[in-house]
Simulated assay, not measured.
Amino acid sequence: MNGAPQVQRRRGFIMGFGAGAVAALGVAALIAAIAGDFSGSNLTSQASQVIRDEYFKPVKSSVLNDASVNGIIRELRKRYDDRFSHYLNPHQLRQFESLTSGRFSGVGLTVTGVKRGLRVASVLPRTPAQGAGIKEGDLITAVDGRSLAGVPTEVATARIKGPPWTPIELRLVSGSGGATRNIRLKRASVAVPVAVGEIKRAGTSKVAYVSYATFSQGAHGELSSTLERLDRHGAQGLVLDLRGNGGGLLNEAVLSASLFLAKGQLVVSTDSRTMGHRDYDAIGNPLSQHPTVVLINHDTASAAEILASALEDHHLATIVGTRSFGKGTFQEVIHLAAGGALDLTVGQYFTANGISLANKGIKPDVRAVDDPKTPQDEALRRALAVLAEKMAVENR
């Protein structure tokens, strides 16, 4: 066949590698023969078996299994514009589970997953990350020489975790100038403060400023305690800072919103093929109400967007900052009997006004951007100015 080498297959037919119609007929014959041999199997099983039997090098079944599932997930992500579904192989699943086990430590960062790796959303004070000079907006592209490009966010984050005092090397691209550098530091036990508050001034008035970091179990209780403490110190308004808050538990978002909304007011609704439609209402007993500004940025996501949108939709807050992340869907980690798990998108959520935030996020009422090159927090300063104006109008 056009001088191409003849290859004898053990199934009793000859397949050539020449060009044109002859080669096409040869491929068709091979496919037909395979289909006959595996008529009771699905396509993935057929292809995997042929590769194990016929490929010019030995291939482990685990490699084929991972490649098959990864291919399926990639197609789902592409076809349905789903940024959040992932396959976690057994090793990655162990890393992911260690992230929430409490047995490991980190370097003191909150991060957001992007295509090239992890973008730093915030740097916690008195941590190895702060000591190493890592800044908000920096991009982590590799951990210990291993690229994070295309790695699921949960797995990439887990790679930064490890036993206290163990060394780690991060490759960083500066958020301000684009320069790349490698830094070495040691992990440490880091306690992430959930709700940190203080009294600030908005014009001539004392107001509460609360930075709300995550929606972990019990977070709404810490938020409630912080707000009540600042109320006792004479706060007459509130800036609720959700910048860098990547979300967390849905029920904590509902309970947090219930600190502001009246009983029965809609916080969020969800739709899922397996769970149907569900409305989540505020449970009641809101705290004392004050003029409120919610501060957001691109790293405000998921449960944080649910809280911010609930306050906005019920006309309880003015939104200041930059457009939020735009999550709009929720995931479930489903363990597979053969090992590993699917971190699979299983539904969508909608704001109290029935809007999906997927790929859109929350557009702020007042745009405000912090300049990382200055020691001042320009976005917070703008939020306090907006709150002062809001209080002046409401007090007329």
Rank of each mutant, 00 (worst) to 15 (best):
L316C: 01
S356M: 02
Y280T: 04
G12V: 01
N42T: 03
S174V: 02
V63D: 02
S39R: 04
E394L: 13
L316F: 02
F84Y: 15
P58R: 12
Q331W: 06
R396Y: 05
D66V: 15
S211F: 06
Q49E: 01
L316N: 00
L336Y: 01
E136F: 05
E305F: 08
R184C: 03
G18Y: 04
S41N: 10
A29M: 06
D281V: 11
L311G: 00
H335F: 07
G177E: 09
R83K: 12
S101N: 10
K360W: 04
S48C: 11
R79N: 13
G197W: 03
I72F: 08
H86K: 04
L307M: 04
L307I: 05
A179V: 02
I134V: 02
R77Y: 09
R119F: 08
G26L: 13
A383L: 11
G354M: 07
R159I: 03
L185D: 02
R382S: 11
A191M: 00
N65L: 15
A23T: 14
V194I: 03
I31D: 03
A383M: 09
I14Q: 02
Q331P: 03
Q8R: 06
S62K: 15
N395M: 03
G347H: 07
D231Q: 09
V27M: 13
A24R: 10
G131K: 10
A303L: 05
V190E: 09
L266P: 11
A235P: 10
V346T: 11
S256V: 14
R323Y: 10
P125F: 09
G247P: 11
Y87W: 03
V369Q: 13
N353D: 12
V194P: 00
K200T: 06
E389C: 01
G248C: 13
G276V: 15
D370R: 14
L357V: 10
E378Y: 12
G162I: 01
L170E: 00
L124T: 12
H335I: 05
A195M: 13
Y280K: 04
L250N: 01
I140R: 08
K57W: 09
G234C: 09
G321T: 12
V196R: 00
Y280L: 07
E389V: 02
V393E: 07
N245M: 04
I319E: 00
I134Q: 02
E222Y: 09
A132K: 05
D231M: 06
V50F: 06
